[in-house]
Simulated scan of single mutants.
Amino acid sequence: MSDQGRLLTVAEVASIMRIRKSSVYRLVHSGHLPAIRVGRAFRVPEQAVHDFLQGSLRNVS
């Protein structure tokens, strides 16, 4: 997993993106934000969060 960077919890992603945890879950379940299921929890690669935000910036412009 070293090429992907570290894995973030849903709470950490929500904090970075400044949205609610339920919104992060919605992004994960819809496939817009890739995640790995670990037991009953999700972990999101840090790079995936940055890629998602970069893609969102391009879509707004």
Rank of each mutant, 00 (worst) to 15 (best):
L27W: 02
Y25M: 06
V60F: 15
L27S: 04
R20N: 13
I36K: 15
G55M: 05
L57T: 03
R18K: 10
A14G: 06
I36V: 13
S22N: 15
G39N: 01
H29D: 13
S22L: 06
H50F: 09
Y25T: 03
Y25S: 06
R6T: 13
K21Q: 15
E12S: 03
F52E: 02
V38R: 03
M1C: 10
V44H: 00
H29C: 09
A11F: 02
L57D: 08
P34S: 09
Y25G: 06
E46D: 09
A11Y: 01
M17N: 09
V60R: 15
V44Q: 02
F52S: 07
T9E: 02
M17G: 04
R43D: 08
S30E: 14
L27M: 12
F42I: 03
R40E: 04
Q4E: 14
A48E: 05
Y25R: 11
V60N: 12
R43H: 03
L57Y: 12
S15E: 15
D3R: 10
Q54H: 11
R37H: 05
G31H: 01
L57A: 13
L33G: 05
V49D: 07
A35T: 08
L33D: 02
R26N: 03
S15A: 14
R37Q: 13
L27F: 07
H32Y: 10
A14C: 05
L33I: 00
Y25H: 02
G55H: 09
S23T: 14
H29P: 05
V60L: 14
L27E: 02
V24F: 00
I16D: 09
V13Y: 00
R6F: 07
R40C: 01
S22A: 15
A41P: 05
Q47K: 09
H29Q: 14
I36S: 09
A48G: 04
S15N: 15
H50T: 12
I19N: 01
H32R: 15
